[in-house]
Amino acid sequence: MSEQQHTSSPSGRHRLEGPKNHYITYIASILLTMLAFAAVMYLGLDKMFLVIFLVGMAIVQAVLQLAVWMHMKERDHVYPIIGIAFGAFVAIGGFMAAIFWMWW
């Protein structure tokens, strides 16, 4: 990666992004995944806690990948964020409705 030296020059108008954040996201995703698997396979945790823990881990990992790998954290991503937020709104709404039907 000899071209990496270009990435750290803040003066350039078009700064090339380095691989660092992507590696960090990859390692963080693997750690979050391992944590989720370990919680189910090795720790006899309470089921309600597991539900919240697993969904929480998944949301953290999804947001991380959306922000870094799909570049949503960068500027000029207002419309993508609105689009995904609407999608998430309907998806979470359906999710909630299904759980509501199940429990009441």
């Binding site: 689009g83 995904i84 937020a85 609407f86 999608g87 998430a88 309907v90 998806a91 979470i92 709404g93 359906g94 999710f95």
Partner: peptide
């Protein structure tokens, strides 16, 4: 966003 609705 639409795909998200589908999978949701």
């Amino acid at each position: 966003g639409g795909e998200m609705v589908l999978f949701g």
